[in-house]
Design a protein around this nucleic acid. Sequence first.
DNA 1: CTCGATGATTTTTC
DNA 2: GAAAAATCATCGAG
Length: 401
Amino acid sequence: MLQQQPLTGSGPPNGRGLAVSGHPGMHALGPAHPPSQRRSDGGEAGLEGTENGHEPRRDIGDILQQIMTITDQSLDEAQAKKHALNCHRMKPALFSVLCEIKEKTGLSMRNNQEEEPQDPQLVRLDNMLLAEGVAGPEKGGGAAAAVSAATSSGGMSPDSSLEHSDYKSKLSQIRGIYHTELEKYEQACTEFTTHVMNLLREQSRTRPVTPREIERMVGIIHRKFSSIQTQLKQSTCEAVMILRSRFLDARRKRRNFSKQATEGLNQYFYSHLSNPYPSEEAKEELAKQCGITVSQVSNWFGNKRIRYKKNIGKFQEEANLYAMKTALGASHGDDSPHTPNSTGSGSFSMSGSADLFLGAPPVNGEQSAYQMGLQSNGNWPSRPSPRPGASPDTDHSDNSD
DNA sequence: CTCGATGATTTTTC
DNA sequence: GAAAAATCATCGAG
């Protein structure tokens, strides 16, 4: 690796080191000796080197030798040596030799897949994070938008604000973590890149380092870091997906309604047995009273109607019970704790209605004709056509019986 | 663990 | 488009 090299005292990178950038012209410098095999042991002079009567090779061997051992020395020593090396008269020659070697080896590694094909998976992750409001340009708008999108698309009623805020806070938590991590990575990446570039610059004094090489190195670093980022993105996506599915799939955390809520709903149901189709306003009122949403009220009535109809006998007791309660509540006026009309809004009043008497306890039980509002075909008088606005129903309508 | 009750969702019907 | 009907999934008592 490229660790604690001279980086320390070597001061700001400057023209000297960067002279390399002119490397292509290096050939001009030297006589371009073929890079004949040098002996790493720097061995005795002699041998082929002396043939020419010159000793450039020996000099180069010396320099190489010194370079090889420079890291073993103390910092000061190394600095001094480095300086000496830089000024060595044979340095240009060595440089040119290295240039040539490089020329040959460089070609081979040139064609490695330089351009990464912009990973499609990464694009997908990015898009998703953006859509979820996790990535996006800074703050809240994104997250809020994502939440509202999620709720509306999921058919969630807008009044489940509790879960809503829960979701929101969890999402922004994820968002926060994601951004901190991302920033951390980016910072580390730049730091590391600068570090490496400094090193390369430093090294470029003694060996040829092309800008392209630096670029390549930077590219490698960036790729490494971006693969880490991809992992981060991936796990963030996963977290969001889990959160989302939990939030949207309410079935998974079904809670039974509170006793009080069920009471209120049943109260209404049995006191309107002949026509158990609460108007929109009535639903809203019930929802408010029971602490549930309007769509939950609708669900409840849907379920109740169908289940009641399917097995009237089973609900007999319950019907009697609520008929009694309602009767009591009506006769005592407002002192019943459960009477919904005590809310005073009066949009639906349960005051002793005709239905109540339909439901009068038959005492001897049995389903008999005691079908409370159901017609002989087992249906309620008529499937309530979507009636606009006015509620002719409530109580007075069914006194026709 | 089983099983009935129950809230929610999906499909069908009108 | 709302309700009915069918179905799913969880709860909670035993």
